[in-house]
């Protein structure tokens, strides 16, 4: 989006223009949903995170200073909301486990089946399933950088702006992420080799 257009759109958003809000949602719902899906690896959770992102945009657009692009800001909110969602889910799981130890397990802890990203081609679905399991094991920052780079297709420069890091740090994060993924996959295939 050209800078002038974006600036105009932000101004309209700040004035509470609903058409402007709809325009932003419809043009960026894909990028928000795809990023969230890459991180939370569950379509329902990704939809929930996407809604939370736009609710936050709606509520706090007046505080947006325009120091970065609107999309960069949206990516930042998405990453932070998706990571919060994962932490909440982990906490819930741990709590349910403790409850089950005391025999008060009324609610079943649902473990979804293996995640397959809907954008992966049919031939690659099986291989991608293992890769996504490995991505889920990565440390937070490596997971974010890898998702933004390989699933959202962003450049190192764009990722550095979103994560507020230097380009060199992003390169290093991605290098470590790839190394860890290879290590995980190697162990997996060695254990499951027939």
């Amino acid at each position: 989006m050209p800078v002038l257009n974006e600036w105009n759109l932000i101004e309209r958003l700040k004035e509470g223009d609903e058409t402007a809000f709809k325009e932003v949602v419809e043009s960026s719902q894909g990028l928000v949903y795809n990023t969230a899906l890459g991180i939370v690896q569950n379509p329902e959770d990704a939809e929930d995170v996407t809604q939370e992102v736009f609710v936050q945009l709606y509520e706090s657009i007046k505080t947006f200073k325009g120091e970065s692009k609107l999309t960069t800001w949206l990516y930042r909110i998405t990453v932070s909301k998706a990571m919060d969602h994962l932490r909440r889910k982990k906490r819930k799981k741990r709590f349910a486990f403790v409850q089950s130890l005391f025999g008060a397990n009324e609610e079943l802890v649902y473990d979804p089946p293996d995640f397959v990203h809907p954008g992966v081609s049919l031939d690659n679905k099986e291989k991608a399933k293992e890769l996504f399991k490995a991505i889920d094991q990565l440390p937070e920052k490596q997971k974010i950088a890898f998702t933004l780079n390989r699933i959202e297709g962003l450049s190192y420069q764009e990722i550095s702006e979103i994560m507020k890091l230097t380009v060199a740090s992003v390169e290093s994060l991605l290098h470590r992420a790839r190394k860890n993924l290879r290590k995980y996959l190697e162990t997996y295939y060695l254990q499951n080799d027939k």
Binding site: G30, Y33, N34, A46, G119, V120, N124, K127, L131, I151
Partner: peptide
């Protein structure tokens, strides 16, 4: 092969 399985990934929409 697993690492390359998402090379041609398409963006998912809600």
């Amino acid at each position: 092969d697993a690492m390359d399985s998402i090379l041609d990934i398409r963006r998912a929409d809600p």
